[in-house]
Write a protein that binds this DNA or RNA. Sequence first.
DNA 1: CGCCAGGGCCATA
DNA 2: TATGGCCATGGC
Length: 213
Amino acid sequence: MELHTLYRLLFRHYGPQHWWPAESPYEMMVGAILTQNTAWANVKKAIANFGEKLTPAFVTEISDGELEEIIRPSGFFRQKAARLKTLTGWYARYRYDIETARAQGTDTLRMELLALKGVGRETADSILLYALQKPVFVIDAYTRRVFARLGFAVPSEYEVFRRFFEENLPRDPALYNEYHALIVRHAATVCRKRPDCADCPFAPSCPGARNDD
DNA sequence: CGCCAGGGCCATA
DNA sequence: TATGGCCATGGC
């Protein structure tokens, strides 16, 4: 089954997902840090704790301790507070302006993000795609799980798996955006809770095997 | 109760 | 390259 065919099945089944759920590019970046190995419900609590003050200036100015208390519900709050400071420091290079950052080349932006302590491949790629609208396909645990279950030989190397998507799909950020969102929607809110896969959009292609992660 | 969630860093072999 | 320990909260 081709990648784009699987995308159409997901889209037909779940419809548009309107990702990333954030009111600004900066809020999106913050969410990318906070959601590291963390349920989104906890991230929402942390983001809500910012109130109307979720801005680069605010995060830069408050103390580490205060920031930690705000994001506490998202877990790993000490390291994540430090990571937010680091990421915001990077954003300052572009005067906290998403269009200024976006004018920079994708490869350069990716290298800069990966150089930050606390920003790994998935976080970097999420920011590149969802905040900067760059054509980068995001790989996460759900992507591996879903495609392993579909019978794909999922590469152990992140970059290899990412290239697989980017080389077999049109170079379209909007498509990558929707595709990844649909994978998460499928894996996190339906497939996981219904092992019987009675209403699986991939049926009968998806064997529904559980020994895949 | 235990399990685990939209990772990443670091030490170790 | 590939594991394993660690970080922490909250929903189920």
